[in-house]
Design a protein around this nucleic acid. Structure first.
Lengths: 332, 332
DNA sequence: CCTATTTGCACAATCGATTGCGCTAGATTG
DNA sequence: CAATCTAGCGCAATCGATTGTGCAAATAGG
């Protein structure tokens, strides 16, 4: 634990093995057969490296090497099932493909996002995936200028290929489900309320379109006051709903699990009147199916989205392209 | 997006600014005043760097520099409120203290854990925090050999300082709460069942101690069959409980939110008999308070744990030391 | 036994940034 | 006006690993 413990280098190993640094390097990075190093010397070096607890100096290696094999990812949050799942699968898939994943969490802060992107590029990331970035185009622009590929995930941008959920179809499916259950359970035809998110936000806007389309196909008119897209936090949803005291059957389309927390708080305060309420949520949570009144949730296909994103890595990028990934409807 | 876009270097900037690479370097890393570079030249270089979208080559910089300012963290999972929270706060706190955080997720796989540790050390991390590692001592040993500080979080080890929740007191408090509520709600005195986790696992063992102590202080005997620590997954908990069909009041101590999923599945299948069941969970989830039958949860004090861990960074390590952080009991 | 290969390795340049040291021109002092 | 000082900057070594090239020694071929 002393500060002056020098890490072992290939030069140390070279001295110990009575060989040259270049031999040590090639043995340890696997290129030694091409360099016609004898099996005997290779074995000796490998044994010594293990004995000494050698670990390559990645900065030195990266400095010289062409490719870094680093792929960076920017996510807004970790403490959320959706982004947690994305981060976790991203790392696993990156490793499976021989990349070194570096994920960083930027709290939906545009400045922090940009700083993080710059840092990842500093570390010579080969590709940067921005998930739910507030300003993806700024990041893409910087990546383009540095010759680094960038891909948008979950939110579309105009300066890089974007892989996003099919929010429209998902929202339409979910809306239909809630409307159906309102009819069968409560004998009531809607219109539903749309709770959570921000209208200026792309995903919210598209989901709202799907929500409205599902109503239109049943010839149900949605009054403007039913669109309660006042923000993402649980508090915002709860206060938006505070004034809504159902005098008859009611249904809600909840736009995220964060908003769902507020909805459930409101729902529970209704006590006996809660029987008159049905809702569904765009986004999945493992405890969702146990919440009374919840008729279904949309689970975004994280694996498919990431698979698609990884397939894009290294390919020439078709800017502006949007790739839609179908969502999965979980009914309870 | 061409492959041969060369990133701008200090040499490029030096040519453009008609100055030397060393001047450019010192201006961009802030040491230029000590080197008596004129304000005029500094301004010129900074402007050019921005125009060119310059980003330092971190590997080159790290190679030469003494300190990397990188702190690494290993977590088992992201898709879980507890570890999601840890990762997120770790990153925020690291940045606030001028460090560059790198978090990596190792799926409770000992080999992957070790590989990840080696990689982080390769990248010259100054300190490595292992969270919930399955084999923390192996990681610490490797760190020690490389002169890198290591700290255990959430699970104790013998080769580095460990910062962990006070599982004993937390479990005792939670057990008391469940026992109390069983008495007041159901008029029943226990004993409770202990569901989830593994007895060989340190945290489970300590929580079990607290669980038993709370029973002892009320002179309640817990039969061996009530300890159902058969694993962490939701399925394991559900199958362990499958045979338990309450003929009278029952109470459960659930050892993690993962196990809780299985418990809730079982609970819901009880339908009318569910009224006879009360449970509490060691670990917090935002939807926990809405689950019927749930009387309270333990929330581990992530901020305090991380604060403590960060304060240890750079300090000479007292191996074997365990620092206990109190948990918070949330009652519903 | 002598030339032609092949085997097995070492040398040295290189990646980009950092930093101790030193040099020059102008300002200041005596 | 010479000696001294200082501001302002450049030179070159260095960090550790990678990799193209070169060169002996060992082996094969005739």
């Amino acid at each position: 634990m002393e500060k002056d413990v020098k890490r072992t280098t290939i030069y140390d190993l070279a001295t110990l093995a009575d060989a040259s640094p270049s031999a040590v390097s090639s043995v340890l990075n696997g290129t030694w057969k091409k360099r016609r190093i004898s099996q005997k010397l290779a074995d000796r070096i490998i044994r010594l490296a293990e004995e000494q607890g050698y670990a390559v100096n990645a900065p030195a290696s990266l400095l010289r090497r062409e490719r870094s094999h680093i792929v960076g990812m920017i996510v807004p949050k970790y403490n959320n099932r959706y982004f947690g799942e994305i981060s976790e699968q991203f790392e696993a898939m990156a490793r499976a493909r021989g990349f070194f994943p570096v994920v960083t969490c930027t709290q939906r802060d545009p400045e922090l996002e940009f700083e993080a992107a710059r840092e990842l590029i500093s570390y010579q990331a080969e590709c940067l995936i921005s998930t739910g970035a507030t300003d993806p185009d700024r990041i893409s622009a910087f990546c383009n200028a540095s010759g680094v590929q960038s891909i948008n995930l979950d939110l579309p941008g105009h300066a890089a290929t974007s892989v996003i959920s099919d929010n429209y179809s998902g929202a339409k499916d979910l809306t239909r489900l809630i409307l159906d259950r309102c009819e069968t359970d409560l004998g009531w035809r809607g219109p539903l309320r749309f709770v959570g998110g921000r209208r200026s936000d792309h995903n919210t806007a598209v989901r709202l379109d799907g929500f409205l389309a599902a109503h239109r196909e049943r010839a149900i008119t949605v009054p403007g006051s039913h669109i309660m897209a006042t923000g993402y936090s649980a508090e915002k949803a709860a206060t938006a709903l505070a004034s809504v005291i159902p005098d008859g059957p009611t249904g809600l389309f909840v736009n995220s699990t964060i908003s769902l927390e507020g909805v459930v708080r409101w729902y529970r305060a209704l006590t006996s009147k809660a029987e008159l309420v049905r809702y569904g949520c765009f986004d999945w949570d493992p405890f969702g199916s146990f919440l009374p009144g919840n008729v279904g949730m949309i689970e975004q296909d994280v694996a498919a989205m990431l698979d698609t994103a990884f397939d894009l890595i290294g390919k020439p990028a078709a800017t502006e392209q949007q790739i839609l990934i179908p969502c999965m409807l979980r009914t309870f």
